[in-house]
């Protein structure tokens, strides 16, 4: 093998004029294919960009202008934050926390049912699986804020609306995630427990739950992380919590108060992320 390889290289040594042109044209041909493909993608992106600039009237100047304006706004109008309103903000902040948590519990409970029904290996019937998947797909495709907008007009202003909105959009995400985790569990163990003559509940408890636990916990906690962000902005459309206060203070041009509200949201998000990370560590 070594001998062969060396022979080839001996032939190829320096006097390559015979093979050169065809090799180079091969290089050029392949390079052209890549350039064409890259050019096509660049062209599509450019066209989309031009079309969007034309449609929205955006210009690059507003990028610099906008950056400048937002910096001026943040540093002159919002800074320093008015910390005297923190007392008023604790109530809304807690509401935001409660909304996220209750919303998570609602979506966990409903998603457990929908997830089991949607998982191929556990569903009582495949039509039920299809329907269950369609419901979660629909709920998932609609952002929580959209649910909040619709619900505010149907149920009224306040945290209950926000909680339901978070719950609904959560079902979309958790229902799918649970179903996927359930589908990935080991079928042999299921069969084993089933073979001992266990009933459905025993199968779930003995074979499914141990394998499902880790995925269940991490997805649910992830959703809690997401919920706190969503809950913080739902108030902008009237669904209670910190966002509602933020919207109010901006409408009244109280930007220094708004800055405090934003800092509060920031702190709340970090706090919840820290806690969910700790809980995840403990449980898994």
């Amino acid at each position: 093998m070594k001998q062969e390889a060396l022979n080839i290289s001996n032939q190829g040594e320096k006097g390559l004029s015979a093979t050169k042109p065809s090799k180079y044209s091969e290089y050029k041909r392949r390079r052209k294919i890549m350039l064409k493909s890259q050019g096509f993608i660049t062209a599509i992106i450019l066209l989309l960009a031009i079309w969007s600039i034309w449609g929205t009237g955006f210009n690059l100047l507003s990028l610099f202008f906008g950056t400048y304006e937002i910096l001026v706004f943040i540093f002159t109008d919002m800074f320093p934050p008015d910390l005297t309103v923190i007392g008023q903000l604790i109530g809304p902040a807690l509401d935001t926390l409660y909304m996220s948590y209750v919303g998570m519990v609602i979506s966990v409970v409903v998603s457990l049912v929908l997830g089991v029904l949607a998982a191929d290996n556990l569903t009582p019937h495949w039509t039920i699986a299809r329907v269950s998947r369609a419901v979660t797909a629909f709920l998932r495709s609609v952002p929580a804020v959209v649910w909040a907008i619709i619900l505010v007009s149907g149920i009224g202003l306040g945290p209950l609306t926000g909680t339901i909105a978070i719950g609904l959009s959560g079902i979309g995400i958790l229902g799918k995630a649970y179903a996927e985790v359930l589908e990935s569990i080991d079928g042999a163990q299921l069969e084993g427990v089933r073979a001992t003559g266990a009933n459905w509940f025993q199968v779930i408890g003995q074979a499914v739950w141990p394998q499902f636990k880790a995925g269940f916990v991490s997805w649910s906690l992830y959703k809690l992380d997401m919920n706190i962000r969503e809950a913080a902005i739902l108030g902008l459309v009237g669904a209670g919590g910190l966002g509602y206060y933020l919207q109010g203070s901006i409408n009244l041009f109280q930007y220094k108060e708004a800055a405090t509200a934003i800092l509060m949201i920031f702190a709340l998000i970090l706090m919840v992320e820290y806690m969910t990370a700790k809980i995840r560590e403990r449980i898994i």
Partner: peptide, 22 residues
């Protein structure tokens, strides 16, 4: 450029890898 590519291809040939060039 062409010269550089041709040189690279010929060196590949010298290490016995002209068929793997692309």
């Amino acid at each position: 450029n062409q010269e550089e590519v041709e040189e690279a291809l010929s060196i590949l040939e010298r290490v016995g890898l002209e068929d793997q060039a692309f």
